[in-house]
Design a protein around this nucleic acid. Structure first.
Ligand code: FES
Ligand code: FES
Lengths: 159, 159
DNA sequence: CGCGAAGAAGACAATTATATCTTTTATTGT
DNA sequence: ACAATAAAAGATATAATTGTCTTCTTCGCG
């Protein structure tokens, strides 16, 4: 169990990737995104469709089409992505799975969980979609890793 | 997506429940545990068997049998339960699902995640299985909730 | 000893998450 | 208009998680 679902992990990585491409002025197709973040291409398509329908990213069909992110969307916090995909149970639900999280009749871990949830919430609310563009372009941050953390990164060019 | 898997939530609640019963000197059967923590009875059986095999709880067959927790196990931190059921990906894995979490070539959320993971780890390492016995017995803490937080709790007696 | 209570174990079913494929639709450039 | 490109959409496949059922074994007690 990771914090986010696999779908959500792909979504966040993809959005960072698209933001970074947008910031250098290019739209980017599914194939390149999938290669750039190491995700199954066709599954990623479904996720991006979903994000696009929800207005978190934009897309254009046809030649020179692809996904991109408009200026104002670059300032969206990534918590929006998480909520769109995984819902908000991470932020409001009881950590032990009780029907509701409430102050009266709390579960044993309630107080501790409240703190973790608020840390998580504020972190995801603070970080924006476009925040890491420079570091990603500069290669300081990564959205994919080589097989075994090997020094060389033999990524294959998209066909 | 919650933090823990459903299975893990059941397991933690069950262990707290058993610990509390043990502290007043009684063993407790699956049926009562399931009723006490609001979980599917037969599925819970599987989970408890698993925990028992791993030595996190003890069980006895036959009349007056049931599950219980020995003295030293009461001091186990609940992170042991989480690790036994959900594994340790929550504590060591990359939050964005990259193959490894590492300082060189970190993902954009690496630093933030490191903090959240360490908070989570220390919290689960600090809290012990028997820690809430008194509060649970006193009804200050709960391991189950009524349907809609309604004041009445129309729980059906086990057959 | 032998019965009944209770957990152990494994087979199986349902649900949800993940992944893939195929067809359709829209857009651009010629 | 036409061809090429790229996303949209929907159907379907696979895997993991969650949940149920049935049978077996063990144990305590009379
Ligand atoms: S009641 Fe469980 S986290 Fe609040
Ligand atoms: S690399 Fe992603 S959390 Fe460390």
């Amino acid at each position: 169990m990771a914090i986010f679902s696999k779908t959500c992990e792909y979504a966040i990585r993809a959005v960072f990737f698209i933001a970074q491409k947008t910031s250098v002025g290019t739209r980017v197709g599914i194939r390149d995104i999938a290669a750039g973040i190491d995700s199954p291409e066709l599954y990623l398509g479904k996720i991006l469709q979903d994000l696009s329908r929800r207005g978190l990213i934009s897309s254009a069909k046809g030649p020179n089409g692809g996904f991109f992110i408009t200026g104002e969307m670059l300032n969206q916090p990534i918590i929006e992505i998480v909520k769109a995909i995984d819902g908000d149970s991470l932020f409001v639900g009881c950590g032990l799975g009780l029907k509701q999280c409430s102050e009266l009749n709390p579960c044993p871990l309630h107080n501790e969980f409240k703190e973790i949830r608020s840390t998580l919430t504020s972190m995801l609310s603070r970080i924006t979609v476009g925040e890491f563009n420079d570091e990603l372009i500069g290669g300081i941050l990564a959205l994919r890793k080589a097989e075994d953390d090997l020094p060389f990164n033999n990524k294959k060019k998209s066909k």
